[in-house]
Design a protein around this nucleic acid. Structure first.
Lengths: 145, 145
DNA sequence: CCTGAATATTTCAGGATGTCAAGTAACCGG
DNA sequence: CCGGTTACTTGACATCCTGAAATATTCAGG
């Protein structure tokens, strides 16, 4: 069989692409940390705040989205709350639940943060519209499993 | 001034691609952490070990590649060394320098780790060779600036 | 209604990562 | 030999993260 379903040893081209994706990931992460740092935020704080800038979420949901333990979320929200970027609200439907929500200030910082993300936006400008469409389709198919 | 140098609002397509790249980054990172965890390694430990599996490096160079302070590298190498995956060697040319090198065991673990990286390899298998080549070229151009 | 299991959050202990400042050892140019 | 620089380590401290235990609340059954 010329095309095995599970190639143990991937071909050179695949390895090259994996390598490139690794580089993109490193660049993206570094850029994200830097953008966060400009607002005196850590990476995890910035990620949590970005989530909350879309919609308020209970602590449990936050932990699921961030793929970490709920006890960890407590601390991160604590620090953001002490800076007035996030607040805890009671859930009227379930008094066990605390809903974390970004304050106005938090939303503003989250927006600045998004706009401060230069990587992926700048180099993308060097691609034609057709190429960007093509890249979008390829990435979409990679993520759709 | 009210008009910053680049208030450019990127188009919808570009934002979509940025979003997708963010998803890819999240998936890649999660996969990497998981693969590292299977060898009882943390992410930073796995990254450092991977670097050393290519070639031995002095502590200073490691800090540069990992984009962190040298004092931080000390601790990570300490933990890897205490597990026999890495060793410190003196540099005959400069006695201030300590060269960190992966042991045989360390190289073996690094190889296992590379092969345990399922993401980016599996979904890539769903792309044709032409598509993978196209993806490679697009990513290359993104990184080349 | 009461009781016990399950759920949401927090707290605590402990390890890992990261920064920064200070200390030690070694190099190097005069 | 001396003074400045470089490489690494150490120590103090903040953050992130997990896992176990504590608290409060919900919910299902009897």
């Amino acid at each position: 069989m010329s095309t095995p379903s599970k190639p143990r040893r991937p071909d050179a081209l695949t390895m090259e692409v994996v390598e490139l994706i690794g580089d993109v990931v490193a660049r993206f992460y570094a850029d994200y940390e830097e953008a966060a740092g400009e607002h005196a935020l850590t990476g995890p704080q910035a990620r949590l705040l970005s989530l909350l800038s879309l919609e308020p979420l209970p602590m449990r949901k936050l932990a699921q989205k961030l793929k970490c333990e709920p006890s960890n979320v407590t601390g991160i929200v604590d620090r953001l709350e002490s800076r007035g970027l996030v607040e805890r609200r009671p859930d009227p439907a379930d008094r066990r639940v605390k809903v974390a929500a970004a304050t106005d200030e938090g939303c503003r910082v989250a927006r600045d943060l998004r706009e401060g993300l230069h990587f992926a936006r700048e180099p993308l400008a060097g691609l034609s519209e057709d190429e960007r469409r093509s890249l979008r389709d390829l990435l979409s198919r990679m993520l759709a499993d």
